[in-house]
Nucleic acid binder design. Structure first.
Length: 270
DNA sequence: AAATAATCCTGCGGGC
DNA sequence: TGCCCGCAGGATTATT
């Protein structure tokens, strides 16, 4: 569910309320998400002060100085702050309890990840293979062009390959390609330099716009499912099969690529 | 090697 | 009303 913007908004929304505070206790209510949750998390975290919350791709890293709490929201995960004493609901798998608030992790499908990293986060097996950050300075048309010369798969699933670029999920892949005017079916290696420039810009714009849309309305309730109606920038093509393209009126089409739904305008995107 | 399918899990909406 | 099916914003693993 959450792509890079949702994770970044969660990071920004949570930070003012819990950075600088000390963990009273950490509570796990399930043993296993995508991987086993370390059973000794409470021992690692109790009494430790949260220094910062960082983000790498769709992962959140809670820096405690002595190590990092690694958290991934998977397909259905969300984080929120609740008052102490709030009873957990179904699928509320993990609490990070501070003196005055609880950061509560909910994940019905349990595709998420919670882990403790004692050493350098860069060397963690889930983080080490990750690709470039699309909002970093190094991500631009030149880079994208060079990185895709040997990729003959359609550009859409290539954009979603986290070993190449992190953070672009199924929604923003379709939306970015629409903004760039590039067909999701086009082989990545057959997109020229100028269009790679446009695509890199489109990705950056799409992600930043979504962060801005979510960031303004998140306060003590941080979520990624659009529950309060404050999230998710209006999509131009995603989930709009058959509707009129906002640019030219041609019906939006959909198909499946690498097992995921894709949406595009066959007139505006070539 | 690179690209696709199968997989982990629960919930929800549509069709009957 | 309920049942069955397919699908869901991720990412790894196995298979062609």
């Amino acid at each position: 569910m959450p792509e890079l913007p949702e994770v970044e908004v969660s990071r920004r929304g949570l930070s003012p309320f819990i950075v600088g505070k000390t963990v009273i206790t950490a509570v796990s209510r399930t043993s296993r998400l995508r991987h086993d949750i370390p059973p000794d998390l409470d021992a690692m975290l109790a009494g430790r002060c949260l220094r910062a919350i960082e983000r790498r791709g769709k992962y959140l890293l809670f820096d405690f100085g002595t190590g990092h709490l690694l958290l991934h929201l998977g397909m259905s995960g969300s984080l929120r702050l609740v008052p102490p004493g709030t009873p957990p609901a179904k699928h509320d798998h993990f609490d990070l309890c501070f003196g005055d608030t609880i950061m509560r992790y909910r994940d019905p499908r349990r595709f998420g990840v919670i882990d403790w990293i004692a050493a350098n986060p860069q060397s963690h097996p889930l983080l080490a293979p990750l690709g470039i950050e699309p909002l970093a300075d190094g991500f631009h048309g030149d880079w994208l062009h060079a990185a895709t010369r040997r990729r003959h798969a359609p550009i859409k699933p290539v954009l979603m390959d986290s070993h190449l670029i992190v953070g672009i999920g199924n929604i923003y892949a379709s939306e970015s390609l629409y903004l760039a005017g590039i067909s999701p079916l086009r082989a990545a290696a057959r997109i020229g330099h100028e269009r790679c420039e446009r695509l890199a810009d489109a990705i950056r714009k799409t992600l930043l716009a979504s962060i801005a849309a979510g960031g303004s309305s998140v306060r003590d309730y941080v979520h990624s499912d659009g529950g309060a109606g404050c999230f998710q920038l209006q999509c131009a093509v995603y989930d709009r099969d058959g509707e009129a393209c906002p640019g030219c009126g041609t019906p939006i089409r959909s198909t499946r690529q690498a097992g995921r739904s894709t949406y595009w305008c066959p007139h505006c995107q070539t």
